[in-house]
């Protein structure tokens, strides 16, 4: 990647931000209001008896689900700029390489949006701290200055469970992220909803299939066997992640202005 590439990526990013600013502002407002609602749902019961530490723990424990959901929303936006015919013409004809176009979109969705999310969390906490005295008799102190570093460092670098569980968890998250990226490339329009439906459908089929087998629980198997099962499951998820990533790349390279009718034609 040379300086011309970086210049083109810069212009691609600026274009995207300028031309879709209403959509991104709505996303930011949604994240802000969602975080504010989450904090307010947790907040009132800790107002009495100086529950600030327990309030912090309650918010911290609620955040992972919210973060995962937000991350999947961001990933589903990867190919949203190909959602209509006019947008596809504009995007495909932009004079930049496929890699540069993808890099710009990746920077926006997987770096920019999370940064905006962090800003939304901070603003929601500040808004809570400002509005609380108007709604309640007292208020709990700001928590964002501790919440953000803890979320970033503890969740990423510290793991209190077993290493194999951590490995399995990371493999699962990688698989689900690439699944949603593939869904974004395949569906483009309402990708989040359609991908979620496919995932739910897949899990239902998997559960129905597994009902035919007598799978032993953790207590019924040897620890070594259970470790092997976890390693195998994690490896399968990683292989599936690679396959999904390759499919996503192929779908992206084969995007045309008018979608062929079947998904098979697109691949």
């Amino acid at each position: 990647m040379n300086s011309n590439s970086l210049t083109r990526i810069k212009y691609l990013l600026l274009q995207d931000l300028s031309m879709n600013r209403k959509r991104y502002i709505s996303l930011f407002v949604g994240l802000f209001l969602g975080t504010l609602m989450l904090i307010y749902l947790v907040h009132p019961k800790y107002l009495l008896h100086d529950g600030s530490e327990r309030f912090y723990v309650a918010v911290y424990n609620s955040m992972p689900v919210f973060i995962v959901c937000a991350t999947l929303v961001f990933i589903s936006e990867l190919f949203a700029n190909f959602s209509t015919k006019q947008k596809r013409v504009h995007q495909l004809m932009l004079p930049a390489t496929k890699g540069e176009k993808f890099a710009a979109r990746f920077l926006l969705c997987c770096v920019g949006f999370p940064i905006v999310f962090v800003i939304a969390i901070v603003l929601a906490d500040v808004a809570r701290w400002i509005l609380s005295p108007l709604l309640f008799e007292n208020t709990l102190p700001l928590i964002c200055h501790k919440l953000i570093p803890d979320m970033l460092l503890k969740t990423t670098f510290y793991w209190e469970g077993e290493t194999l569980d951590h490995f399995l968890f990371c493999s699962f998250m990688t698989w689900i992220a690439t699944f949603y990226a593939m869904g974004s490339a395949l569906f483009r329009r309402r990708a989040l909803l359609k991908t979620k439906l496919c995932l739910m459908g897949g899990f239902i089929l998997l559960v129905l299939f597994l009902e035919n087998f007598d799978i032993p629980g953790k207590s019924a198997v040897d620890d070594n066997v259970f470790d092997v099962m976890r390693i195998v499951a994690a490896c399968i998820l990683l292989v599936l992640s690679v396959v999904q990533f390759c499919l996503t790349r192929r779908l992206y390279n084969r995007i045309q202005v008018i979608s062929k009718q079947t998904w098979y034609d697109r691949i």
Binding site: R8, Y11, S18, K22, Q86, K87, V89, M93, A96
Partner: peptide, 25 residues
């Protein structure tokens, strides 16, 4: 190559800004 289709989405920005963002490419 530049294609101007029959129907296109004109972005909701000023033309000057549109040129500033697209011309360098």
């Amino acid at each position: 190559i530049y294609i101007l289709p029959e129907e296109f989405d004109a972005p909701k920005i000023s033309f000057e800004k549109y040129v500033r963002l697209h011309a360098p490419l």
